[in-house]
């Protein structure tokens, strides 16, 4: 019963201050739109970095001619490095498994049917504990007769400079991305708080009268908070709609034109549905918070 009164009060105040309400809605809309483009981009880059990171393993190619004893001794050396703490884990990939893996990464598998036989070597795929120490691991294994030295990197393949660069980029993206999201959120709250302050300032006489007839602070505050939530949610819904249009007409065509059709990408980002829910919640929260906090100043008796 009280709630319906507060709701009516909120609607009344939105209607009687159309200009300011529209300003608040547009502010939320812009802030949420920026947030809505930033969050998926950030998660996309994050996911891409993680995928690249997981590729930072060392491949040790085993020569087709290597004897079982030679392979066992190579495996022994790797186990040795594992017990020294340099190697996190390793797997043996047979020729057959290597072919399977290639198949799964190709979207057009008919190409493979053209091969007369399996050209792929067997290998040990080593995941290092610290990608920065790849060179040390490689040096320790070099010279083992099981290694196929005709392969890339003389049989031990890892990307030394790429590894280091990628690692520092990953860190940079993680930290700056987090800071940027934080700054954006704070900016949004301040902007909305400011707009709502305008609305409350315009009605400070009204608040004064309410206090004189014995309204408690929360009695005065609720309609403003509900008003903030309504404006926040409307603004967020509007920007979700705008984001949806951007996704369908700009982002998706662009991705389709620029992705290599031969490979499938495992890089992913947040789904649009969950993004929409997060943004609308954020809009409502920011609106409620903005008006609730701003009103404090006017409620000091």
């Amino acid at each position: 019963m009280r709630l319906s009164f507060f709701f009516r009060e909120a609607i009344r105040s939105i209607r009687s201050n159309v200009a300011i309400s529209v300003a608040a809605i547009v502010t939320v809309m812009i802030a949420v739109f920026i947030l809505g483009t930033f969050i998926p981009s950030y998660l996309y880059v994050q996911s891409a970095v993680n995928q690249e990171k997981s590729r930072l393993d060392i491949s040790v190619y085993v020569a087709d001619a290597a004897t079982d004893a030679q392979v066992t001794s190579l495996q022994g050396s790797i186990t040795n490095l594992h017990s020294q703490g340099l190697v996190k884990s390793y797997v043996f990939v047979s020729k057959q498994q290597a072919l399977q893996r290639l198949k799964s990464e190709l979207s057009d598998q008919s190409i493979l049917n053209l091969l007369p036989n399996n050209p792929l070597p067997a290998s040990f795929d080593i995941i290092p504990n610290d990608p920065a120490k790849d060179a040390q691991i490689a040096a320790a294994l070099r010279g083992n007769p099981a290694i196929d030295t005709t392969m890339q990197g003389q049989g031990i393949n890892y990307a030394a400079t790429t590894t280091n660069r990628l690692l520092s980029v990953a860190k940079f993206i993680q930290y700056t991305g987090f800071v940027l999201i934080l700054i954006l959120l704070i900016a949004a709250v301040l902007l909305i708080g400011n707009t709502i302050r305008l609305s409350i300032f315009a009605r400070r006489r009204e608040v004064e009268v309410m206090r004189l007839v014995g309204a408690t602070n929360w009695f005065i505050r609720w309609p403003f908070v509900i008003e903030g939530i309504i404006c926040g949610v409307i603004g967020a819904i509007a920007s979700v709609f705008a984001l949806y249009l951007a996704k369908v007409f700009i982002v998706e065509p662009w991705i389709n034109n620029n992705t290599d059709s031969l490979t499938k990408s495992n890089v992913s980002t947040i789904g649009f549905g969950s993004l929409a829910v997060i943004l609308i919640l954020a809009g409502g929260l920011v609106g409620a918070f903005g008006s609730g906090v701003t009103l404090r100043r006017f409620l000091k008796v």
Binding site: R205, E208, R211, L212, G214
Partner: peptide, 21 residues
């Protein structure tokens, strides 16, 4: 508790202090 005090006291002012909308 001030709001509860004021509910027991009626106030009339020179400038009426009505809610305009």
């Amino acid at each position: 508790k001030v709001p509860y005090l004021r509910r027991g006291i009626g106030c009339v002012f020179q400038d009426f202090k009505l809610l305009p909308g």
